[in-house]
C-alpha cells in the first residue's frame, strides 16, 4: 500500500488537478482468469493485467469480442473471482464493497423486475440493502432520468430507452462509490443510443462517480470516458491506453468536433489493427 501511494504521489499531475480525480480507487494487480473447459482443457481469458482507476474517473474498456473485457468487469464488480492476482476497490475486496452496498450496476439487459413499477424498481436497492426507502431520493432519480411521468409504469409499458434509463436510475439511487456499466445501451438503435449517451454524460457530470464501462462502440467510449483501455484477445490483456482530454460537459456538438473525431479515428485504427493480427494468426 505504501509503495502504491508513493507511485501516485510522484505522478506528474501533482500540481493542481481536480483532487477528486487523482486518488487511486481501483487497483488491479497481475490479474489472470483461467476457465476450465474440461478436466485437462482450459482457456486463459485474461493474463497478467495490471492498471489503476482513480477515484471519480470514468474508464471505458474496449476491444474485440472475446478479449475478456466483460470478464474483467465482472471481477471488478465482485461477481467473479480472478484465478490469479488481486483486485482491490477502495482498499477492499470487491465483495466487501458489494456487502457495503456501495456498487451500482446497469447492463445491456436491463434486469428490471417486471412485477414492480418504475418507483418500485428504483426503490429496490433500498429494500435489498435493508435501508429505509427514501421516497425523495427515488423521485429525484426518476426526475434525473426524465421518467417522473412514468413513475407508476411497469417495465413492459416502457420503451427500450426508458428501460435503460430506469436501470441507470436504479444503479445510482444509493449514490454508489463504483458504477459498473456493461454495454448499457447495446440493445438500442443508433439514434437513441446517441441520445442516451448524452443523458448519461449529463447525469454523470452532475455527480462524478468512479465508473467502469464496457462497450463495443468507440464513439461511445470517447464520448463518455476520461480514459480508454484497449484490450486484445488470446490471451486477454490491456494493450493500449488513451486519455480523453475533451472538456465536460460534452454535448452532441462535441461529438462532431475535430478533436473528438480524430481521437475516435486513432482508437478505431488501433482496434482494426488488433482485429487484423487476430485474423492472420
Amino acid at each position: 500500500m505504501a509503495e502504491f501511494q508513493k507511485e501516485t504521489l510522484g505522478s506528474p499531475l501533482d500540481g493542481s488537478p481536480p483532487t477528486s480525480v487523482m486518488q487511486p480507487f481501483i487497483e488491479i494487480d497481475g490479474v489472470s482468469k483461467r476457465f476450465h473447459l474440461s478436466r485437462s482443457d482450459y482457456v486463459d481469458a485474461l493474463v497478467d493485467i495490471s492498471f489503476e482507476i482513480y477515484r471519480n474517473e470514468f474508464v471505458a474498456l474496449v476491444g474485440p469480442s472475446g478479449c475478456g473485457k466483460s470478464t474483467l468487469l465482472r471481477m471488478i464488480a465482485g461477481l467473479d473471482e480472478p484465478s490469479d492476482g488481486v483486485i482491490k476497490v477502495g482498499d477492499d475486496h470487491p465483495r466487501e464493497l458489494i456487502a457495503k452496498q456501495r456498487v451500482g450496476m446497469a447492463m445491456q439487459e436491463h434486469g428490471l423486475m417486471p412485477w414492480l413499477d418504475a418507483v418500485g424498481n428504483v426503490s429496490l436497492p433500498f429494500r435489498l440493502a435493508g435501508l429505509p426507502i427514501d421516497p425523495e431520493r427515488v423521485e429525484e432519480l426518476l426526475e434525473l432520468v426524465k421518467l417522473s411521468k412514468f413513475s407508476n409504469a411497469r417495465p413492459s409499458q416502457l420503451s427500450g430507452g426508458m428501460k435503460q434509463r430506469l436501470s441507470i436510475a436504479r444503479a445510482l439511487v444509493l449514490q454508489p462509490d463504483l458504477l459498473i456499466l456493461d454495454e448499457p445501451f447495446g440493445a438500442l438503435d443508433a439514434v437513441t443510443r446517441r441520445m442516451m449517451n448524452q443523458e448519461l454524460q449529463r447525469i454523470w457530470s452532475r455527480k462524478p462517480t468512479t465508473t467502469v464501462l464496457v462497450t463495443h462502440s468507440l464513439e461511445e467510449a470517447v464520448f463518455l470516458s476520461d480514459r480508454i483501455l484497449m484490450m486484445s484477445p488470446n490471451p486477454g490483456t490491456v494493450i493500449s491506453e488513451y486519455p480523453v482530454p475533451l472538456p465536460r460537459p460534452r454535448t452532441l456538438e462535441t461529438s462532431r468536433e475535430k478533436d473528438f473525431l480524430s481521437l475516435v479515428e486513432s482508437v478505431t485504427a488501433r482496434l482494426d489493427e488488433i482485429c487484423a493480427t487476430e485474423l492472420l494468426s
Binding site: A77, G78, L79, I98, A99, K100, Q101, R102, V103, G104, M105, M107, E109, H110, G111, M113, L124, P125, R127, L128, A129, G130, R170, L174, I180
Partner: peptide
C-alpha cells in the same frame, strides 16, 4: 441478469428471496 443485479446491490440471501 436479475440475479447479478441483486448480488451487486449487496442483498442477503433472505432479502434476495423476499424481494
Amino acid at each position: 441478469i436479475q440475479r447479478d443485479v441483486t448480488i451487486v446491490f449487496g442483498a442477503s440471501r433472505w432479502k434476495k428471496l423476499r424481494f
